[in-house]
Design a binder for these strands. Structure first.
Lengths: 355, 355
DNA sequence: TTGTAGGCGTTATCAA
DNA sequence: TTGATAACGCCTACAA
């Protein structure tokens, strides 16, 4: 027999369609899906049956507008191409998925203005943000945080929920490690000048250099990229240092490639230390690196975000993640004969480092 | 106590706030953003100025509810950790941004079931999908495509809008290149068995091998990862081949590292060719690779998606992107003395370093 | 336990 | 060129 199921083909069924068919109010239908405990068992079953016949599914957008909860979160990164952030993303997504959130990804390309725009555009569709290494000024950040929950990764601002990867101790250990091997001068190849991580790592290296009698020379880069690391090679060779501590693995890998292109080998001519541990096994020789559990950092960020959304009181929470110095094959004693092996012939065109 | 910077519960400014400040109707404000051509220049400027001052940004969700368009798209990738997909993502996002779309990112971890779940969950919030190397069975794909517009990347199914990176010619050139250098036996280190790209590349290599008199041996890997490439090294050394064509750069890089760990050097002992061009300059020696413009592939995907959404007739469109064999430093003549240098002592579990 | 009615922020349809 | 006003689909006090 033909049921009297009137379903228009062109339009997706709405709550009203279901209500009409079920001969109940729209509120009842709404409750049948959102708060079934407020309805009688029979009613819930009844409504859901009708809904199923009609192919009704609650409209996510309408619900979001009405409740102000989107069921989404956004992850902002400065460069998804950097394996550290890619891994972070995986951690975020896996946790988000198991917590019923969908994830927007936005790449700010290290650009604060773009970061601002992206946050603003996403704000209405998102219950919260995970901001990885945000470059935004504190003031702007506070503004956004006033509207949407924000969890910061590697930026330390009071009253913000934040996850900090504390590499200081490991960097100190790395310097000590180099000192024990006999290095007397090392370079720190920096990451983004204004990033919290960079400041923290630089300070740790400087302090440890002082303590262990290792002279530290700083090499600035604008962005932590392979190319930037590579570009440091010539300067490193000139610098009289015998070891490099890089801001991250990508830079370290670039440095290694750059050194190789100048005919130097690691660790014979230079010792190299990276950070993140995400590229460490992917280089040859395997990179001595300060390992970070990026995946769990991502998961923790989501947990913290959910935490804060659920209970505002836990905003301001500061979670510190440990790191581990993992010694692999890129660190060794410096060349015995005082000076490092120097492949650049005097007058060679490459020799254009004169300031 | 610290400064009480609790920017408190100020809600985001709405269209009404702007309208009030600008002393115009909400409709006018709406037009100033959505259809400025319907307004006088002065009015647009006026409204936008006020909006900026207030920090107003159109509410994406409300707009979506009103227009029936979500204004979002989703990119699905098998592994965001792979630089190819990371670059793709950047292309997608940049184009999406300039087209007023926000981007969900979902990582299926090469898992078809997860892929299915992710698509289903995202469907309600998205106008369309960009599916990169989808592993889903055709049937399932068709199902999803019935609900939401789908653009495929590197999967060739009739009637689907799709973007194909056609590496066949370049792989043939690569084999020819190797043949001319004098190689007589080469290995193809495969990617995902069922992926379209892998099939295409494998066929091209086999055909070219036939034509140029190069014996091809296939090495299977389950996933295109650095580790998988590395794991092939021992087998490659045993295989009697003198060159490797890898499914992608990540595998190639792994292979190189694996060879190095066995004491072999590239290109002296082995020639290596990768694909994607995204890691090529980041290895040492610089990898000979088949370059793909991932970024523009991402952009093209968005364009195509928008195209199809705007005009259903252009679904089924098949866009083929070219590739380029870029010869760098990992390919050279094989060792003159018939057999390749063979560092593995018979019965030796693992050779350390013999130099 | 269920219904009524107002509102979420925009866009779209008419008028003016 | 601009302004009222009704949708858009759903949720949620407040009532019954």
């Amino acid at each position: 027999m033909e049921e009297k199921i009137v379903k228009s083909v062109d339009r997706a069924p709405t709550i009203s369609d279901v209500a009409r068919q079920a001969k109940v109010s729209r509120a009842t239908v709404s409750r049948a899906f959102g708060q079934p405990h407020l309805l009688s068992r029979e009613m819930v079953a009844h409504v859901r049956a009708i809904a199923e016949r009609l192919g009704y599914v609650p409209n996510h957008t309408a619900r979001a507008l009405s409740t102000g909860k989107a069921g989404n979160l956004a992850l902002l990164v400065p460069d998804i191409t950097n394996p550290f952030f890619a891994s972070l993303m995986r951690g975020v997504q896996s946790k988000a998925l198991s917590t019923q959130y969908a994830t927007f990804l936005a790449d700010s390309d290290e650009n604060p203005d773009l970061e601002d725009v992206l946050i603003a555009k996403l704000a209405a569709q998102v219950d919260g943000f995970i901001l990885a290494s945000p470059r935004l000024p504190k003031k702007t950040l506070l503004q956004h945080a006033g509207r949407r929950v924000c969890v910061l990764i590697n930026r330390d601002i009071p009253n913000f929920a934040r996850i900090l990867v504390d590499g200081a101790k490991s960097y100190e250990q790395a310097v000590e490690h180099l000192a024990r091997l006999g290095h007397r001068a090392a370079a720190y190849v920096s990451g983004p000048r204004l990033s919290w991580s960079n400041g923290q790592r630089l300070r740790a290296v400087l302090a440890a250099g002082m303590r262990y009698g290792v002279k530290i020379i700083q090499f600035a880069t604008d962005r932590p990229t392979f190319e930037a690391g590579e570009a440091c090679a010539a300067g490193l060779i000139e610098s009289g240092t015998t070891a490099v501590l890089a801001y991250d693995d990508l830079l370290a890998q670039g440095v290694m490639a750059g050194l190789a292109r100048h005919g130097l080998s690691v660790p014979e001519d230079f010792s190299v230390v990276g950070c993140d541990g995400v590229l460490a096994t992917r280089t040859y020789p395997p990179l001595t690196s300060i390992a970070i559990d990026c995946h769990s950092a991502g998961e923790k960020a989501v947990e913290l975000l959910v935490d804060v959304m659920h209970d505002k009181s836990s905003s301001g929470k500061r979670i510190v993640l440990p790191t581990d110095l993992v010694i692999r094959a890129t660190t060794a004693k410096p060349r015995p004969v005082g000076r490092a092996y120097h492949p650049l012939m005097p007058g060679s065109p490459k020799q254009t480092k004169s300031e």
